[in-house]
Every structure is written in structure tokens, then in C-alpha cells.
Simulated scan of single mutants.
Amino acid sequence: MKLLSTYVLFAAIVLGFSCKQKKETEKKPEPVAVKVKGMEVEYASDSTSLKGYIAYDENKTEKRPGVLIVHEWWGHNDYVRERADMLAELGYTAIAIDMYGDGKQANHPDDAGKFAMSVMTNLPEAKARFNAAMNILKQQESVDTEKIAAIGYCFGGSVALTMANSGADLAAVAAFHSGVGLPIPPNKDLKARVLVCNGADDPFISPESITAFTTAMDSIGAKYEYISYPGVKHSFTSKEADANGEKFQLPLAYDAEADQKSWESLQQMLTEVF
């Protein structure tokens, strides 16, 4: 009996040592590096040819949420494409969309204002262009068509909010340095969770419009967050803001801290929603 007990003890020690060795030699699989692929796409509404840019991590195999990004009033430019790349790095498939047609861009605020006004005063066409972009996003193999969000900057933020208020099938919407006096105010058709990040010193956004917006959101029980950054001006996420402000004598200014904090708030919302 004593010999048997000794044998069992020895076997247990050997087995335990072998398991420990195995665990020590086993290596965790290396995380797959992010490899962002960006590609230009052409699409169209019934009346307008449109040019967009899609970005995604081609090393990621599973389907993921899709995010539409609506440009500032300057038009579809490198800035909005950079944001698409940034979202792709986070694991989303993003499309920088075109609301003006043919990738048209403005070089002067007067032209930018005219382009933006032509979109916001023709909501049926605005919806058609937005929906055309959403459709091409949903056609991407990498996209989970049940998980779609939209974000926008300046004019683009107003577009994203307006589309959400019109009943667009969006799970989340974020607007940065965006007007909130919208052609379609918040109403029961709103399905999305909403984030608005604005500068407290932005003269383009009146206190009255903020009050009207938040009152309307509260009245329908919307899930939203309105963040106002003290001392921050318009266009605070764009590193071109200071140069444009000086060139055109406009109250624009980049703010690195507000830019970072607003991006972190976006990431938090998307993570919670998806």
C-alpha cells in the first residue's frame, strides 16, 4: 500500500510538472495587425452622380458596424476621408459620403454656403443622396447591415441629425460643431441615440437653438448627450480651422483637447450602442 501511494504521488508530481511546462510553452496567438484599406467609390441618387470613399480593416474577417461620415460645408475632401480611416482603425467600415454631387468642393465660404443651402432646402434630394450612400455602405461584405451609424461635421452634422429626425434607420448619430436649428426638428420618428459636441464660444450656434433642440429631445424621451466645451469655437476638430479663419476672417479655431475629447465620446457611444 505504501509503495502504491508513493507511485501515485510521483505520478501526480510528474503530471503537474508536465502541465505547467505545457502552459509555459504555449503562446497566446499574436493579435492581427490593423491594415486599413481605402477605396474610392462612385454611386448615384436618381438625379445626381456622387463620389465617396470607403475604408475598412481588411485583416478583420467578421462583419462590423458601418458608419456614414458627412463632410463640412467645404465638401467631400481629405479631412472627411481621414475620419473614415480613423474609424476603420477602430474596427468599423466607414464611408465618407458626398452630399454635393461629383465630389464637388468649395474654395470660398460664399460658395460653401450656397452648396450647403442647396442641400438643406431640398430635403427630398438630400434624403436620396444620403440613402444612396447608406445603400452602398450596406452592400459591403464587411458590414453588418443591422448596425449603421452616421456622423457629421458642421454642415454634415446638421445633415446627419436631420436624416435621423426624418426616420432614417440609424442606431447612432454624432454631430460635431453642428447647428441644431434643423429643417426637421426632433420628433417621434427619431430612432438613433444622439451625441452633439459643440464649442461654447461658437457664434454660429445660438443659445436659443440649443434650448429648442434639447427641449424637443427631452419631450420625446430621446437618448442623447449635448456636450458644450468652454472657450471652444467653431470647427474645433479641423486642423485647417485656424488657417481658414485667418484667410476668410471667420471665428474658426482648432482645439486639440476638444477634438480628442469629442472623439473619445464618439467611441464610447458607438461601443455602447454596438
Rank of each mutant, 00 (worst) to 15 (best):
Q140P: 06
F10P: 05
V196W: 05
G103C: 11
V180A: 05
M86Q: 15
D102Q: 10
H108L: 06
E82K: 12
V159T: 13
A94N: 03
E257N: 06
T215F: 02
V70R: 04
D85A: 12
T25V: 14
H177L: 10
A164E: 06
A94M: 05
L9Y: 06
A243C: 08
V67E: 01
K104T: 05
A128D: 07
K20N: 15
T211M: 14
V80C: 02
L90M: 12
Y254Q: 07
K188T: 10
A106G: 09
K247G: 13
G179F: 10
A174G: 12
A258I: 02
L170K: 07
G221E: 09
A164M: 04
P230K: 05
A174E: 02
T48C: 07
A11G: 13
L87G: 09
G199T: 06
K147G: 00
P124Q: 00
D85V: 05
E141P: 01
P124Y: 00
F17K: 06
Y53C: 05
E146A: 11
I13S: 08
L3G: 05
L87P: 03
Y153Q: 01
V273E: 12
A94L: 06
S265P: 01
I227R: 05
A192H: 04
A33W: 07
K27H: 03
M120P: 12
M1H: 12
K60L: 14
T6G: 14
P186D: 11
V180L: 09
E82P: 00
L190V: 09
Y224M: 01
L270A: 14
V173N: 09
R129I: 05
S265Q: 15
R193E: 14
I95T: 08
I95Y: 03
D202L: 07
V80E: 07
G231P: 02
I210N: 12
A164H: 04
S209V: 13
E208A: 13
M163A: 07
A253V: 01
I210Q: 15
G38W: 10
A253D: 08
A133W: 04
E40K: 14
S228H: 12
E24K: 12
N122E: 00
S158E: 04
D98Y: 13
I220N: 03
